[in-house]
């Protein structure tokens, strides 16, 4: 019986994380898949959301900024808004840049966010982080607490999916995809390219902020080392590429597939004897990297191909049509 309960709890935990990652992957799909914006700072927006919600909901402790005691219905939207605000500031400056410059800039933002969280102890608790974060429904007994939180996450994920899918099919979605595929043509037809790209970036970042908040409340703790920031960013990218960028369905399925692999393989490797169990995570990370390379090479459109262009390219300087490209143009 205990074993059964263990399995059910594991399944609940698995599904909860899949729901959270599905929201994150959908956010990245809005940024990269639809709008063509290269964000490698996912963890930064995630952290801003996590800390904002943690600070707004916890009681005063003296170890970090707090004492607002707000309920999550206010704190989560606030977390999204703060992540969105940061994204807006970044986008205002960097959105016109070539995609790989934007990627470097987002790495920088994530790094700055990390430094602030680590150094500004009065607000964030420094390396000790913030603990005693409340989790909705945690007063319920037995597995009901987990189930109720899971339902909340899944409901949010479903809502996000529905919004993202309506957005993709809306006139707005068609315009941002047109910009992704051919920026100059979109500009020539009078679209405000910068404003639309900023919108895509901000919306995606708000969703990442939401997942940060969800994670902080789910783990009841957040600290600079609570999550390996680079690993989060990497996993979300692999989810989107494997699922098929440009497709919201792909993002969600990619999240489900990759997280299931990630989590169940952990379950298996945790039974390995001592030293091997410590090192297994690195083998798993390496293998996820290989999966990424394999999909990039063999399934350019991802496993959930929508027939749409999978990888936005924005040739900045089209070579004259008569030249042969040995190298990728841009």
């Amino acid at each position: 019986m205990d074993i059964l309960i263990g399995y059910v709890n594991y399944a609940i935990a698995l599904a909860t994380m899949i729901g959270i990652y599905a929201i994150m992957a959908t956010g990245l799909n809005i940024q990269w898949g639809l709008t063509g914006l290269f964000n490698l700072g996912i963890a930064g927006f995630f952290a801003v959301g996590a800390y904002s919600s943690a600070i707004l909901t916890t009681a005063a402790t003296g170890k970090h900024l707090g004492g607002f005691d707000l309920p999550v219905v206010f704190a989560w939207p606030a977390a999204m808004a703060l992540s969105a605000l940061l994204a807006w500031a970044v986008a205002r400056i960097c959105i016109r840049l070539r995609a790989d410059y934007l990627a470097i800039a987002t790495i920088g933002i994530a790094e700055i966010v990390r430094l602030v969280l680590k150094n500004e102890q009065w607000a964030t608790g420094g390396t000790r982080g913030i603990s005693n974060i409340s989790r909705p429904f945690e007063d319920l007994t037995g597995m009901w607490a987990g189930l109720a939180f899971l339902s909340l996450v899944l409901a949010l994920a479903a809502a996000v999916y529905w919004l993202a899918e309506s957005g993709r099919l809306s006139p707005w979605g068609r315009v941002v995809q047109a910009i992704r595929d051919n920026e100059d043509a979109a500009r020539a037809s009078g679209k405000d390219v910068e404003a639309l790209r900023i919108q895509g970036f901000v919306i995606g970042a708000a969703l990442m902020g939401l997942t940060g908040a969800l994670t902080a409340h789910y783990l009841k703790f957040i600290g600079p080392e609570a999550t390996d920031p680079l690993q989060i960013t990497f996993l979300v990218w692999v989810m989107l590429i494997v699922g098929g960028s440009g497709s919201n369905k792909g993002a969600v399925l990619g999240a489900a597939l990759i997280w299931s692999l990630w989590s169940t393989s952990e379950l298996l490797t945790s039974r390995l004897p001592g030293e091997w169990a410590h090192r297994a995570p690195f083998v798993r990370l390496f293998l996820v990297g290989l999966i990424l390379q394999f999909v990039l090479q063999k399934f350019p459109a991802g496993l959930m191909s929508t027939g749409a262009r999978n990888t936005p390219s924005k040739p900045k300087k089209p070579s004259s049509r008569n030249t042969v490209h040995v190298l990728p143009p841009f």
Partner: peptide
């Protein structure tokens, strides 16, 4: 990936970064 848009290479290199680190 050489014949694909250069950003595909960039994504690939991000993956390679994590693979080297993991190894």
């Amino acid at each position: 990936l050489m014949k694909r848009p250069s950003l595909v290479l960039t994504i690939s290199s991000f993956g390679v970064a994590l693979m080297i680190r993991a190894a």
